[in-house]
Design a protein around this nucleic acid. Structure first.
Length: 517
DNA sequence: GGACGGTGAAACTTCAGGTTGCCTC
DNA sequence: GAAGTTTCACCGTCC
């Protein structure tokens, strides 16, 4: 049974009052809001109302503030909140910051987390109180109620079984009418139906190729029967239409030379029904890479045209920025157009896709893809996280996620190019992948091979005349200590002395071998 | 009179998240 | 659609 809570009003904002009340009780709370910016703002507002600080929190704040190579405004903001035992949590935080916040909330040193829905899914972070401040979220059709399923997930964070006998989940209503609406929708209402993700073409063609490539499905009938048993078919109902979609996918995969179809096999087969689909070597690889077959086809067909051109890394960045996997892209705004034009002027001729006309419906997305490529380009020219946040409004966590996908796409691209026997291209792709991973210019590549040497330290070494491993090996230990501190100096000295070869395999997870190029 | 700071209204701007793909010692 | 941020005009204060 819901009971009535008496909350003292200190501020005009009800969620703030509930938070302060929770703190007075000595309990913890999660506040859910609908944007990253709001999460930060609310956390900041709360922290301003808190007086006490302590040593442990100071240390935590310092650690979180230094989580990326060049602290951003976001890092400073988080650090200020943490000093008061308050935190915000969203996908824009660096990985380390997220886990710090989670860990210290569990330990109890952080009292309040203001979060976007990230925190509602997956993570087991219970709190005495859950405050769902925002129940609307911007969507393409204007503001919309957030899904019931999602709100229930948030509610589910309330109450810590091992600490409390109860948990409280609260929504904020501005008017009695709204209160009624919220009760109907989120307390009495049933969660939405779940829809199969297979219904989306990219997902479908990826699975189809994988089924054929693994030998699980080899005829048209088998494919139809397999998908006929899925949840997707169950929801879709119209088997005829479904069969049509599968047919279309099969012929596309065949056209792209990822599978060999019955038509190729017709002579040897007794009848059309016996004719089998078989994966090509290329198709098998595409399936293993787990990229959308369309993406694979797109990359291959673009790069094929390239043999006559000089290969620009920017053009490769642009190819990956045009794929489905890299979406959502950065949005090109009016203020970005000068920079975009500048890049198009410089690289336009070497790009694999021409700029569409301004009236082309594709135009906007093309501009977005160029802007995204520029962001990557600035990263491999050693621009810092702080700069990228200011310029592209991309936070460290989001940047990381994008880089991950880009790395995977470049790896896939390099694997596909092997089928085209095009060594010059392969070399450029590998170089780009390496540069993107470390965010460095080409000249620093030898140095970042060392453990504990990232973009910042590598640049430091380089600008002090230590331009490659041989130079580092010859360098005086006092000079190295001056540049990098004692521990790291000793450490890299150990690495370069004699056994450079060993350094490469032993490095971090996900290492790319330089021997490749 | 000018520098400075505070205030508030109006004009802009921007809007959740993510999982798996691959490599490898 | 609304929250958050930026911009700008306006006013009061102080030197």
């Amino acid at each position: 049974m819901p009971k009535t809570l008496k909350i003292t009003e200190i501020a005009s904002d009800p969620s703030m009052n509930i938070v302060m009340d929770t703190l007075a009780l000595g309990k913890q709370a999660l506040v859910f809001v609908n944007t990253k910016r709001s999460a930060e703002k609310v956390a900041e507002d709360i922290s301003k109302k808190i007086k006490e600080e302590n040593n442990e929190l100071d240390k935590l704040a310092e650690e979180a503030g230094k989580a990326v190579s060049r602290p951003t405004k976001q890092c400073e903001r988080l650090a200020l909140c943490l000093k008061k035992g308050i935190a915000f949590h969203h996908a824009g935080l660096a990985h380390k910051q997220k886990s710090l916040v989670e860990e210290h909330f569990r330990k109890g040193s952080i009292k309040i987390i203001c979060a976007t829905p990230t925190l509602a899914f997956g993570l087991d972070l219970p709190a005495y109180r859950v405050i769902v401040r925002d129940l609307h979220r911007y969507s393409q059709h204007g503001l919309a109620w957030i899904p019931i399923l999602e709100v229930h997930q948030m509610f589910g964070r309330a109450g810590r079984p091992s600490f409390d006998n109860e948990g409280q989940a609260l929504c904020i209503a501005a008017t009695p009418v709204e209160k009624e609406k919220i009760t109907e929708r989120y307390l009495k209402g049933l969660p939405e139906d779940i829809f199969s993700k297979l219904a989306v073409e990219p997902v479908l063609r990826t699975y189809l190729l994988s089924l054929i490539s693994s030998g699980f499905v080899s005829t048209h009938e088998q494919a139809v029967s397999f998908f006929g048993k899925t949840f997707w078919a169950h929801q879709y109902k119209d088997m005829e239409k479904l069969e049509g979609i599968i047919d279309k996918m099969l012929s596309l995969l065949e056209e792209w030379e990822f599978i060999m179809g019955p038509s190729d096999d017709f002579q040897s087969a007794d009848s059309l029904d016996d004719a089998k689909y078989q994966p090509t070597a290329l198709g098998k690889r595409v399936s293993e890479l787990y990229i959308d077959p369309y993406t694979a086809h797109f990359m291959l067909s673009r790069l094929q045209e390239a043999s006559s051109k000089k290969i620009e890394l920017f053009a490769l960045l642009h190819v990956i920025s045009r794929t489905l996997e890299l979406r959502p892209l950065l949005r090109a705004r009016t203020k970005d157009f000068d920079k975009i034009q500048e890049y198009l002027l410089r690289y336009g001729n070497s790009l694999f896709e021409e700029e569409p006309s301004m009236y082309d419906p594709e135009y906007e997305e093309y501009m977005d893809s160029v802007k995204t490529s520029i962001m990557f380009d600035e990263w491999i020219h050693e621009k810092g996280e702080d700069y990228l946040l200011e310029t592209y409004n991309i936070r460290p966590g989001e940047l990381n996620a994008k880089m991950d996908v880009a790395d995977w796409l470049l790896y896939s691209m390099s694997e596909l190019v092997r089928f085209q026997h095009y060594p010059a291209m392969l070399k450029e792709i590998l170089k780009l992948r390496f540069r993107l991973r470390y965010g460095v210019q080409e000249e620093l590549l030898p140095l970042v091979r060392l453990e504990n040497i990232g973009r910042i330290r590598a640049r430091k070494l380089y600008s002090n005349g230590l331009k490659d491993l041989a130079a580092v090996r010859k360098a005086d230990i006092t000079k190295l200590t001056q540049l990098l501190g004692k521990n790291i100096a000793l450490n890299i000295k150990k690495q370069v002395d004699g056994e450079i070869k060993e350094v490469v395999p032993g490095k971090r997870k996900g290492q790319i071998s330089l021997e490749d190029y």
